[in-house]
Amino acid sequence: MKIIKISSLSCPSCIIMNKIINQLQNKYDVEIENLDYDFDDIEKYNVGKILPVFIFIKNEKEITRLIGEHKIEDFEKIINNQE
């Protein structure tokens, strides 16, 4: 599974979520693609006004997305449901 993480260097919530993403990577076989809201081309992902955005991709299709600050359990739930 791949998670596209759209965040910003200026966003405190994104910094807080970095720790959770690291934990997730250590625990699960997930690929994380980091995109910068301000400097990368993210138009196609239709990102709203809240950051960070985590888009879950499986078989090159978006399954779901998580927006804003979340607990690791929220990510685990999605990953476990797909396995």
């Binding site: 910003s8 200026s10 966003c11 405190p12 809201y37 301000d38 006004k49 809240i50 950051l51």
Partner: peptide, 17 residues
């Protein structure tokens, strides 16, 4: 439901950045 950073005036912030 979503708690995160609210992006206001994306063009202005990009200029500052």
């Amino acid at each position: 439901k979503e708690e995160g950073c609210e992006i206001v005036n994306p063009k202005g912030r990009k200029k500052i950045m």
